[in-house]
Nucleic acid binder design. Structure first.
Length: 480
RNA sequence: CGGGGCGUAGCGCAGCCUGGUAGCGCACCUGCCUUGGGCGCAGGGGGUCGGAGGUUCAAAUCCUCUCGCCCCGACCA
């Protein structure tokens, strides 16, 4: 990837985002395959780190990984009325195979509730088989009209958890436990603050009783749904006849949940922290945490500097950029745009004095430190950067969240909140969970992101549209 | 799927209007020289001009169709 200029955020946020993805060597459009992308090594390494964080949390509460087929009989999708209605417009269908037309077409999974429901019905007989706690890491395909790398592509990678329980309460606990895991990873690993909440009826997953989400704010003020967790009730249990016998001998349908996060998180990560110089990665998700750039002029300097560089690198798991024929300046730019959290400059001056210069990606601050302190100082710089990124994102979220007490106020805030100018807002207003209210917001190109689980404002009030009493304020915003 | 923009060397572009040897910058290769924020000089390699069809003696250039990408909208993780 040749290194080209990056469009400043203030000039064109969408162009900036694309430049950062490309120049950070995270991904590129597949071009020959509509709507798809190639996730490059740097981007995939971030995904692997995220996967590990999520996977160990899932396993810690008893989930096991499995894998179901990519292809699903078309008839399966139709078994849950709301589900088929929600997904049919974006399905890719396989009609031919082995040189013949298939008797029944397969759809390429847009999500796996249906095929998993089928197998659940074969595997579950008794309450002793419950809860069944499964997760799969997979690719899915949704034929999107408009794609953006990581944020929305036709094919994407995700995990989808699917669980079955003997009662509703336990299923709801599961849904909320997972939502907490998502929020924990978003905030403490990705350094991306999120709002946990319930989706409105019209925004919920097709086929769910209730959907919960975590919502994040990007640097332009647009909302990003970063993860969802669904209480499926008995809808799929009934559609696929997943019955179990209770300890009292009664036959009942299972209560199911499903939940997922996708490679979209990487888009959120990029839009949370990166700057006009390129990618900024929080240390916990940086595949390379530290690069040492050696600086030398003469042969004798070169050997001494490189020797010191490799010795220091071994002590703190850093990478030495010892490429020939590249000036130190070129190397600084290279690692900067790839989001490496800390770069260490090491030249003859430092070697002579027993020092090293440590530079943080986010602040650009340089610090000269004794070499023997490097491992410790590096660790503390990384830890501090992780915290600082979170704090900066948190502050941005707070500063761009505003209260509105009438529909006119909601409208005027959203009208001024053009993302192109980086002025997107989260508007907190009282609003009834009613499809007609959601529809009104469409006039402002906004949606209810969610109804926060935790009310951080003033409690009950009157809906700004219907005037009816509602419990708390909801998050209204323009979204990706 | 509608509106707009764009497809010419790995990347960024010029050439197209007015048809006539396919160019420039960066990157790449070789050599020398350099290295504290994108070094320099010299030489060199690399192209079915997105694809198909048509007009023409002749098409990157004109016409028709098609595919893809980006932006804006309607639908969505």
């Amino acid at each position: 990837m040749p290194e080209s200029p990056i469009t400043p955020r203030a000039r064109d946020f969408a162009a900036w985002y694309q430049d950062v993805v490309l120049q950070g060597d995270m991904a590129e459009p597949a071009e020959i395959v509509k709507g798809c992308m190639v996730i490059k090594a740097n981007g995939y390494a971030v995904w692997e780190l995220l996967q590990r964080e999520l996977d160990e949390r899932f396993k810690a509460c008893g989930h096991q990984n499995v894998y179901f087929p990519l292809l699903i009989p078309e008839s399966f999708l139709k078994k849950e009325a709301e589900h088929v209605e929600g997904f049919s417009p974006e399905l890719a269908v396989v009609t031919h195979a082995g040189g013949k037309r298939l008797e029944e077409p397969y759809v390429i999974r847009p999500t796996s509730e249906t095929i998993i429901g089928y197998f659940f019905s074969r595997w579950i007989q008794s309450y002793r088989d419950l809860p069944l706690l499964l997760n799969q890491w997979a690719n899915v395909m949704r034929w999107e009209l408009r794609t953006r790398m990581f944020l929305r592509t036709t094919e994407f990678l995700w995990q989808e958890g699917h669980t079955a329980h003997s009662n509703h309460q336990e299923a709801v606990e599961e849904v909320l436990r997972i939502l907490d895991i998502y929020a924990d990873v978003a905030e403490n690993v990705m350094a991306m603050p999120v709002i946990k909440g319930v989706k409105t009826a019209s925004e919920k997953f097709a086929g769910a009783l209730r959907s919960y989400s975590i919502e994040a704010m990007m640097q332009n003020g647009l909302a990003l749904q970063a993860g969802t967790s669904h209480d499926l009730g008995q809808n799929f249990g009934k559609a696929f006849n997943v019955q179990f016998q209770s300890s009292e001998g009664r036959l009942d349908y299972v209560w199911q949940t499903s939940w997922g996060v996708s490679t979209r998180l990487i888009g959120g990560l990029i839009m949370s922290h990166s700057d006009d110089k390129g990618l900024v990665l929080p240390p916990k998700l940086a595949p390379v945490k530290c690069v040492i750039v050696p600086i030398y002029r003469r042969e004798d300097e070169k050997s001494r500097v490189l020797e010191t560089a490799h010795r220091l690198a071994a002590d703190c798991q850093a990478k030495v950029d010892d490429r020939e024929g590249q000036s130190p300046g070129a190397k600084f730019f290279h690692w900067e745009r790839r989001g490496v959290p800390v770069v260490v400059e090491l030249g003859p001056r430092e070697v002579a004095a027993g020092n090293a210069v440590l530079k943080r990606r986010d602040t650009g601050a340089k610090e000269t430190i004794p070499q023997q302190e490097l491992p410790g100082r590096l660790q503390s710089a990384l830890a501090q950067m992780q915290l600082d990124l979170y704090q900066a994102a948190r502050r941005r979220l707070q500063e761009n969240t505003v209260l509105a007490n009438s529909l006119a106020e909601v409208e005027s805030i959203l009208k001024d909140a053009t993302a192109e100018r980086g002025g997107g807002k989260f508007v907190m207003a009282h609003l009834k969970d009613d499809p007609q209210c959601d529809a009104r917001l469409k006039e402002f190109k906004a949606t209810v992101r969610n109804i926060p689980l935790k009310d951080e404002y003033d409690g009950p009030g009157k809906c700004v549209i219907t005037g009816e009493p509602v419990d708390r304020r909801v998050v209204i915003a323009k979204a990706y």
